[in-house]
């Protein structure tokens, strides 16, 4: 219980720190968003209009501390600012439109990669030296060794362009509108396969080899030998004694991976023009869309922290040594 409170407190402090840094960083940069906006209108902006814009974006000559509280109030009440690129759409709306695509694509793919990689890692280590162990880790490593956006380009070229099996880009077809209809879902799935495959191939090997190596080390531990000697059934030995311990480092990696789910797989989304947050973020950076960048960063930071909180709590469930602070070795 103390551990849980401890983690929660840490989470709250971290979120506050992330929010504050997110406030300070843009104010330390040269120029301001209104200048960028001004530049965008290519001098066709009167000083009055410029002033109006500044007011609209919440820029004022207030003392910094007052700005800070205005900012905090805005965050809580959902006023995160307006996007330049899609002016006058609020950034929250822009993010709300692209985030589901990313979470759907990267999230499902990551989970698939983690589960499949971990399960096969357990199996290949258990059947060490077997045919699967002799082929799969090397094959997967070979694929992962290629930069994943290049893998994506190859997939687009061969499976999309040459064979015409899958669409080349975008999240769904032009003929359908986002809705709960079967046609849309089917179209979204067809569009998702190539980017999903790209991300999967780019990450699967890490999960597989990581788990396999942990597992091989754990299988040599005394408690596994002792359990084998005391007659524990092979399946139980593999899962409850070996994998149960070997999986702990994977959980940590998974926490990091969850962060990537929200921040998106920028390059993959760019290659496939996939309407996720990664593509949005890239566009925002190119357009100097400060409010959107800021909002996106905030969402990413909070998501990563939240994911870490969940994993910390999960870790305590999985490893009793963490709960008590691990006093004895």
């Amino acid at each position: 219980m103390k551990y849980v409170l401890n983690r929660l407190l840490f989470f709250i402090i971290s979120v506050w720190a992330a929010v504050t840094i997110n406030f300070i960083l843009p104010r330390m940069m040269p120029g301001d968003p209104a200048d960028a906006m001004f530049a965008k209108f290519q001098n066709n902006l009167t000083p009055q209009a410029m002033q109006a814009l500044k007011l609209q974006f919440g820029f004022s000559n207030q003392p910094l501390i007052e700005q800070y509280f205005t900012y905090l109030k805005g965050l809580v009440t959902g006023h995160w600012g307006l996007s330049f690129t899609y002016y006058p759409t609020p950034t929250t709306t822009v993010i709300a439109q692209s985030l589901p695509w990313t979470i759907g694509l990267v999230g499902i793919t990551t989970l698939l990669s983690v589960f499949l990689g971990t399960a096969l890692g357990i199996y290949t280590a258990w059947r060490r030296g077997g045919w699967l162990d002799n082929t799969l880790p090397i094959a997967s490593l070979f694929v992962q060794a290629a930069p994943y956006m290049w893998t994506g380009l190859l997939l687009v070229y061969f499976l999309g362009f040459k064979l015409n099996w899958f669409p080349l880009s975008h999240g769904y077809g032009d003929s359908v509108e986002p809705s709960a209809s079967a046609a849309f879902i089917l179209s979204a799935l067809r569009h998702g396969i190539l980017p999903a495959l790209t991300i999967f191939l780019g990450s699967f090997s890490g999960w597989l080899i990581g788990m396999r190596n942990n597992m091989v080390v754990t299988l040599g531990e005394d408690y596994v030998v002792f359990a084998e000697a005391k007659g524990v059934r092979p399946s139980r030995l593999m899962l409850m004694y070996a994998a149960r311990n070997a999986i702990l480092p994977q959980i940590t990696s998974f926490a990091i991976a969850i962060g990537n789910i929200v921040s998106g797989s920028i390059l993959t989304e760019v290659v496939f023009s996939y309407p996720g947050i990664g593509l949005q973020l890239q566009a925002a950076v190119l357009q100097q869309d400060y409010p959107l960048i800021q909002s996106a960063f905030l969402i990413i930071a909070v998501s990563v922290l939240l994911a870490n909180l969940i994993v910390d709590l999960l870790y305590a469930r999985l490893d009793p040594r963490v709960r008590t602070g691990g006093v004895a070795a």
């Binding site: 531990e221 005394d222 408690y223 002792f226 000697a229 409850m240 004694y241 999985l318 490893d319 009793p320």
Partner: peptide, 16 residues
């Protein structure tokens, strides 16, 4: 037949 191992510290599964 059973056996008591040399390694008292590590012969037990840490998560059970």
């Amino acid at each position: 037949m059973s056996m008591v191992f040399q390694s008292a510290m590590t012969a037990l599964n840490p998560v059970m």
